[in-house]
């Protein structure tokens, strides 16, 4: 007897040409579109496992004074050497302070990437776009690979790109708030209009929100709090990685149109009834 259905899943190999896409930033080809932060983890061992589970190619760190009164492990010992280290300038309240922190970060000898973060306010941690622009102008001249964290604004983002920013990192919601992509409408416009990758940074609380950013065409997503404060941060890192990959695939595939009324999946004829 012939089998009812002729094909086994192993008979057909699908080669998806669209997935041959990497994110190119600052001369680096990144396989992963998940940028992961390293703050708020319970300990460095857990952070290390989360980094590995996330498959992130870019990992952020901050720059601080060493506490001479308490001996702590060094975070660099727990970050795989094959990931790009992207120090941020958190703590900077103006362009000059951001430039100073960038210099210190570069002097550590871990590359020339810098995430500019200039924040004058402590309640909402919203960035100062104008001071950020000034810091970009200064640091691009010194051959830094500059990625600015910014309050979503197309005109300002364009100025930042003109000044040499290699990507733009608009916030989705206040840092650490886990509220999701509240700035969606502006970010969508930025994705459409800017010539550099848009990387949503801050506020992303769940993998579904990260996937949504990627479906919109964002170049990448940065998450920290959402992963680090999950009950199981390692599993959450993996969940984010999968969501970001799924969202990217959906963007490349092109999502179907949205409409008000239903559209039947099968013909509305040939029903087993007479009227």
């Amino acid at each position: 007897m012939l089998p009812l259905r002729g094909i086994s899943r192993d008979d057909i190999i699908i080669k998806n040409i669209n997935m041959k896409n990497t994110l190119k930033i600052g001369g680096k080809e990144l396989k992963s579109r998940f940028f992961m932060g390293t703050g708020k983890f319970a300990n460095f061992e857990e952070m290390q496992k989360a980094i590995i589970a996330s498959k992130a190619d870019v990992v952020t760190v901050a720059v601080r004074r060493v506490d001479l009164d308490s001996k702590t492990d060094n975070i660099l010992d727990f970050i795989p050497k094959d990931v790009v280290l992207m120090p941020n300038t958190s703590g900077a309240r103006n362009a000059d302070e951001a430039v100073r922190i960038a210099h210190l970060a570069k002097a550590a000898g871990c590359g020339n990437w810098i995430k500019i973060e200039v924040i004058p306010d402590n309640q909402y941690l919203l960035p100062d776009n104008l001071e950020t622009l000034k810091a970009i102008e200064a640091l691009v001249k010194e051959d830094f690979v500059v990625l600015p964290y910014m309050n979503p604004d197309l005109v300002m983002a364009r100025r930042m790109v003109e000044a040499g920013a290699v990507a733009i990192m608009p916030l989705g919601a206040p840092i650490g708030s886990n509220r999701g992509i509240k700035t969606k409408e502006i970010v969508k416009i930025m994705v459409k209009e800017l010539s550099v990758p848009v990387i949503v940074d801050a506020g992303i609380g769940k993998p579904s929100e990260a996937a949504e950013c990627m479906e919109m065409g964002c170049g990448a997503v940065l998450a920290d709090t959402a992963v680090a404060t999950a009950d199981d941060s390692v599993l959450m890192a993996e969940a984010f990685a999968e969501a970001i990959e799924a969202g990217r695939k959906a963007y490349l595939a092109g999502t179907g149109g949205v409409q008000e009324s239903a559209s039947a999946s099968s013909p509305l004829t040939g029903f087993l009834r007479d009227s």
């Binding site: 932060g37 390293t38 703050g39 708020k40 983890f41 952070m47 952020t60 760190v61 901050a62 720059v63 601080r64 004074r65 060493v66 001479l68 060094n74 975070i75 660099l76 280290l85 120090p87 941020n88 958190s90 210190l104 970060a105 550590a108 871990c110 840092i175 650490g176 940074d201 801050a202 940065l222 998450a223 920290d224 709090t225």
Partner: peptide, 8 residues
Amino acid sequence: IISFVGGG
């Protein structure tokens, strides 16, 4: 005296 710490 400065070093790297966790951050996002």
